[in-house]
Design a protein around this nucleic acid. Structure first.
Length: 264
DNA sequence: ATGGCTCCATACTGGAGA
């Protein structure tokens, strides 16, 4: 007999402007039908989020916009998106829209857009490390609640050398510096699992290719969009991957969507 | 080491991204 269970598909996608990317976003959602989606880099103020077009294909959403940059959203088809917070705790002065959290089908889902941090060292790198410290504290707090947790989005962290096409070129970059990688490892040490690496420990897997020099055609990429799963979710993990072909579409983002499937 | 490309802003140029 086969086990009788349903699956739930959760995706993350840095769209690099939700309005510039709307045709591609709608096409990808229509083709892949994820149950839950976290979006980053909306690059739209709150009232310019294309909620009508998203509702029209069956998704509901919560989002936190910002003028020009940043912006995050959580979408779902078939589940209520129960908002928990729309900022990362720990700094009331931080006005950048980089974190949103909801309970969806009993799972706490944090959608995040971690700061880039370049140039490093400097104030932007300090902001990145401070943000990671706040994320660590919040990630630890979430584990104390009796709910499964998924923290997903654009981490702007290259975890290891195998996650970048030429690691020696990135040693001084904010995405790959020792402080950044150490902070990411400290998140995992709390008890979170890197879903892609758990299921594909040796594969070369990228989620981002820059717009320059035919980076996608040469597969000169980075793995910087991640799924961190609490133990309760990690035990339910069935599959994880990257919708790499979307990066090859016309007028596409520099990131590709990343997804997991879990038992429901 | 640099620049290549794409997006937004009140725009014919600059900042940010990674």
């Amino acid at each position: 007999m086969f086990a009788n269970f349903h699956t739930m598909k959760i995706a993350t996608y840095n769209v690099n402007s939700v309005n510039a990317r709307l045709p591609i976003l709608l096409r990808w959602l229509g083709e892949t039908q994820p149950d839950v989606v976290c979006l980053q880099e909306l690059k739209a103020v709150q009232e310019n989020f294309p909620i009508q077009a998203i509702n029209d294909i069956g998704y509901n959403a919560i989002w936190q916009g910002q003028k020009s940059w940043n912006g995050v959203a959580i979408l779902s088809k078939g589940y209520e998106v129960q908002e928990v917070r729309r900022a990362l705790p720990g700094d009331d002065e931080d006005e950048q829209s980089r974190y949103i959290e909801a309970i969806v089908n009993g799972i706490t889902i944090g959608g995040l857009y971690l700061p880039n941090g370049n140039p490093a060292p400097g104030p932007k790198f300090d902001y990145k490390l401070g943000w990671m410290k706040r994320l660590h504290a919040h990630a630890e707090q979430l584990l104390k609640e009796d709910k499964p947790v998924i923290l997903t989005g654009d981490y702007n962290v290259i975890p290891e050398g195998q996650d970048v096409y030429k690691p020696e070129r990135w040693v001084d970059d904010a995405l790959f510096r020792p402080e950044t990688r150490e902070a990411f490892q400290q998140l995992l040490a709390l008890g979170y699992t890197d879903a892609i690496r758990k299921l594909h420990p040796k594969d070369t897997i990228y989620t981002y290719w820059d717009y320059f020099r035919n980076a996608y055609g040469r597969n000169a990429g980075l793995r910087i969009d991640h799924f961190l799963l609490s133990k309760q979710v990690g035990e339910r993990l069935l599959a994880a991957g990257v919708d790499k072909e979307v990066r090859g579409w016309e007028k596409t983002s520099d990131h590709a969507p990343v997804w997991i499937e879990i038992k429901d």
